[in-house]
Write a protein that binds this DNA or RNA. Structure first.
Length: 104
DNA sequence: TGGCTGACAAACT
DNA sequence: AAGTTTGCCAGCC
């Protein structure tokens, strides 16, 4: 337990939401940041450090474009889960966006 | 102590 | 439509 440092609460909140993202759906860093607080960059930083055990590929940019760091790993996951992809190589936010606030 | 960096976002040209 | 610039928040040098 322990829980030592406070950041753990913040990290836990972010990871919890990411784990709640249903397959075939995606959310944005800004949306998560709006729920857990802080800024979108902070969410990204947390994911980079502690986002190992969570489906981080379901978290994308606000434009629906794939983050440079995701790599082909995320692309395969999208196809495998049936995530609505756009011909431009991005994601169809209008169709695949999942709201962490309402949970739908 | 000040400045740079970073899984971002929104606005402007 | 695309590329560039500024802002935000926290951690690290």
């Amino acid at each position: 337990m322990l829980n030592g440092p406070v950041d753990e609460g913040y990290v836990e909140a972010v990871l919890a939401l990411v784990e709640q993202i249903p397959a075939g759906r995606i959310t944005t860093y800004g949306a998560l940041a709006a729920v857990v607080g802080g800024g979108p960059r902070q969410v990204g930083s947390v994911m980079a450090r502690y986002g190992g055990p969570v489906p981080w590929w379901r978290v994308v940019r606000a434009d629906g474009t794939l983050p440079p760091s995701h790599g082909d790993r995320a692309r395969g996951a999208y196809l495998a889960e049936g995530t609505p992809l756009k011909l431009s190589g991005g994601l169809d936010l209008s169709r695949a966006f999942w709201d962490p606030v309402t949970g739908d």
